[in-house]
Amino acid sequence: MKGLKLSRVLTYVGAVLMALWILVPIWLIAVSAFSTRQGIFDFPKALLPNPFSADTMSFFLGATNVLPSAGRSVVVAIITIVISSVIGAPAGYALARFNFRGRDVFRLVIVSTRAFPIVILSIPIAVAYIQLGINDNVFSLALMHCALALPFTVLVTSSVFAGVPRDLEEAAETLGCSPLQAFMRVVLPLALPGLAAATLFTFVLSWNEVFASVILTSRNRTLPALLVAQLDESPLNYKYAGGFFLLAPSMVFMLFIRKYLFTLWGRVSR
């Protein structure tokens, strides 16, 4: 009995250590982001902002281009969500509901493009955009982000739709619904939470994306692109505040998404 308790305690210790491995770096960037300009250069450093100050954050947010870039990031993410949902969700529904010829091939294509190197896609697309004269705008960048998000959207929506029993849809049809009505009245309301989580994932994907963003934009930067392009010349307080500003939404998003992590990634990975 005693041995059992000991192993329980050790398991907890392990779990807490792992949690600290994740949390301590986040804490430290928060400390830096909420120190004064002077505090950032203090050495040795304190583990609490001393004094606590919003100066660094407001300096960052007040810097030229930061807020417009952040706004652009949001716009790009929203366009990405809209396009990838409009294009991807029907395909996901088809995968979940229909047994059609070529279904397995289609699924394989989707699955194998899910980890497709963005580096490879970005450079030829950038060249093509310049030739077409559509480089450096939010819509073009969103299209590129869609390419990243689409395999993910298709697989996630397909697992979400597959989670709504076929019977419910058929029941609705025997009760007088057309296939479209059955979808709108029964499938969609039930799939909504899962679809919302998928949407958040797409948002995070686009909000975080660096390589394509910095390659495809020059004046109309998104926030990560702006930060990367200025990495060499930006002062420390700007950097830390920027890092924290990029990171903060992700912690909140994860709070909403975590329930779906496994229905999303579990099924996707198989």
Binding site: P165, D167, E170, A171, E173, T174, L175, G176, S178, P179
Partner: peptide, 15 residues
């Protein structure tokens, strides 16, 4: 289509 067949159905899973 089912909706014009004038039927009612009970499913195994209840649905």
């Amino acid at each position: 289509p089912p909706r014009f067949r004038d039927i009612a159905m009970v499913f195994q899973s209840y649905a």
